[in-house]
Structure formats: C-alpha cells, structure tokens
C-alpha cells in the first residue's frame, strides 16, 4: 500500500558564522526503498540522527525529497503532497499546536480539520476518548497533563477521523504501561475492523520486538536491514550474549579471563560478550568455577534481542566506513 523507491534527501552544507560552526552536507535519507503492506505494523528503527524523522516527513508530504518516489494507496505523494493529509493521520513528536487546548477540544478540532461535520467529530471524539480512557481528563488542557498523558491525548487526536494509514512518530514516549496497552489495543482494533496500516518510528527495541510485523533498520539514512523481528534475529541466531558483572575489577590475573579481555565490550564493571552457545557455556563454567568466581558479582546469559541485531548491524556498518 505504500511503496518507496530510491528516496534521497540531502541537507545542504551550512557555512559557519560567528558562534555557529559550519556543518557539512548531510545525506539524511540515502536511496531508501521500502514496501509497506496493507494491514501491517511496520517499524522504522534506528538511533538518533539515523534519518527516521526525515524519512517520515517525506512520506507524509511535509518535505520534498531530492529524488525518488513515494506512492501511498496509488497516490503519488511526491507530486501531490497535499493528498497525504487525506490518506494518513500523522502523530508527530511535537504537541505545541495542541498544548493549550483541552483534551476534548484538541480531538474535536483535529477531527473537524480532517473534514468531519461537527456532530460526527464530537461522536468520534467521545468514542476515542472513552476507548483510550481519557474521558476523565477531557476538560483539562494538554499543557497541564503529564508527558505520557499528553502523548496519549495527541494520539487520540490522531485517531479522530479514520485514516487507512497511521504514521506514529514514537507514540508511546513517556507513557505508563496502562496507556501503552491502550495505544496498542486501539491500533489492533483498527487493524481488525478496517485493515488500517501503521508506520511506527521507534528506538524502543523492546516495543519494536513485541508490536511490529516487520521492521526496517536505518543507519545514516540507509536501510541496512528489513525483515520481521524474528527474521532479523536469525541473522545473529548463532550467538548468545553473556554479561559478566565484577565486584570491583576483572581478575585479569586469571588466564582464562585475561584471554577474553580483547573480545569484550566493557562498561564499568560490566563485560558484555557475544559468543557461540558452546563457547558461552565454557566461559560461564570458567567464571563460576575457578579463581574468577570470587571476583564475580553477577552474570546473565541471554538469547539475542532486536537490540543485539541492531548493534551487530550498526557495528558492521561503522567498521565498513572506517575501512573506506
């Protein structure tokens, strides 16, 4: 339903002025090609500055790409950016347009600006606020709510005036588990009833793993992997992660421990290793058995998560760049 081909956007270099350092040309999205299918929850995962928001702005018609095409439900969004607003609902990271409105008025106004008549907008507003458990807060201005509640109110506004595609930029930031569950069950209900599609921007890997059907991993404007979360995890399935936490310092006088030293990622007292299962078992046996045990505070053994995949892929790219 949403086909992206060769999408490229370069921010021009900015010349430095007094007090403002120059920034070089940045390729925010670099030849991005994606296919989002109808009815799926598709995720964009990547670190800050990976180009997720730039990509989303181009998909929602807020930004013109330098080259490439975006087609949503058969409409060319690059040529007709104004059509995007009639196909999709966008939840951005900023709520400043709604901040001083009450929850109820924010939802109603957004519905009316999506072309609903007054009565319809009010009916949908009431339904959505009830569905998300926001009815008790309906009369409060968004500004006076906590971060998570405000986010939920913005999400409510995005749902009034049904759209076949929901583009959500980090929708659950700051939310408590109850609010988060309300968001995902609202999304699921729209999927089941209307076949709605969701494009989700996130850097919460745990959430990505549980809600996404497919995920594209972005790094420096490029899609470095795109698959189901399980499919991506298979790429590093041969490895397990071993975390060792030492009481004070690692007992480097133990030869087995010293031999591991150049393979660990060290952060304070914590050592993280990625090993084949057999090797991991040996390491755990060594540190829990011999002389090293006295220095050991805690250890964990875990199968790879999406975070490991992400780090493994990201790491590979960075090494590649250094070589070039």
């Amino acid at each position: 339903m949403c086909a992206v081909r060769g999408l490229t956007k370069t921010y021009p270099a900015v010349r430095g002025r007094r007090g403002v350092p120059a920034t070089p040309e940045v390729r925010a999205t670099d030849d991005v090609t994606l296919d989002i299918r109808r009815g799926e929850i598709f995720g964009l995962l990547g670190p800050n500055g990976a180009g997720k928001s730039t990509l989303v702005r181009q998909l929602t018609g807020l930004m013109r790409p330098d080259s490439g095409s975006v087609e949503i439900l058969g409409h060319d969004i690059v040529r007709h950016p104004e059509r995007a607003s009639r196909i999709l609902a966008y939840l951005g990271q900023e709520s400043s347009a709604l901040d001083e409105l009450t929850v109820s008025l924010a939802a109603e106004t957004t519905g009316r600006l999506r072309g609903l008549a007054v009565r319809r907008a009010r009916a949908e507003r009431d339904d959505v606020l009830d569905e998300l458990g926001l009815a008790p807060l309906a009369g409060r201005p968004l500004k006076k709510l906590s971060g998570g509640q405000r986010r939920l109110a913005c999400f409510a506004a995005a749902l009034v005036g049904e759209r076949p595609l929901l583009v959500l930029d980090e929708p659950t930031t700051g939310m408590d588990p109850v609010a988060r569950r309300a968001v995902w069950s609202a999304v699921d209900r729209r999927r089941a009833e209307h076949g709605s599609t969701v494009l989700l921007v996130t850097h919460n890997v745990i959430e990505a793993e549980t809600v996404l059907d497919r995920v594209a991993v972005l790094d420096r404007g490029r899609v470095i992997a795109c698959d189901t979360p399980a499919g991506l995890k298979e790429q590093v399935a041969g490895e397990v992660r071993v975390d060792l936490v030492w009481r004070e310092a690692a007992p480097l006088h133990v030869p087995e421990v010293a031999a591991l030293h150049d393979r660990v990622v060290e952060s304070g007292r914590r050592w993280t290793l990625r090993l084949a299962p057999e090797e991991a078992r040996t390491v755990v046996a060594t540190v829990t058995g011999g002389a090293a045990f006295a220095a050991l505070d805690d250890f964990t053994l875990a199968t790879p998560s999406l975070e490991d995949v992400y780090l493994a892929l990201g790491g590979a790219v960075r090494q590649g760049l250094v070589k070039a």
């Binding site: 196909i87 001083e100 409105l101 106004t109 009316r112 072309g115």
Partner: peptide
C-alpha cells in the same frame, strides 16, 4: 488509486480553528 478522505471545507475549518484559538 484508493479513494481520498474528505477535504476540510473553508468555513467549517475556519470556525474550528477560530474556536480552538479562542479557547486558548
């Protein structure tokens, strides 16, 4: 191509923006 959602018409949306701004 799928059918597009409705466009918000000038006067109703002006009234909606006006009302929201006034409430601020």
């Amino acid at each position: 191509a799928a059918e597009l959602g409705p466009r918000a018409r000038m006067w109703p949306s002006l009234a909606a923006v006006y009302r929201a701004q006034l409430s601020r």
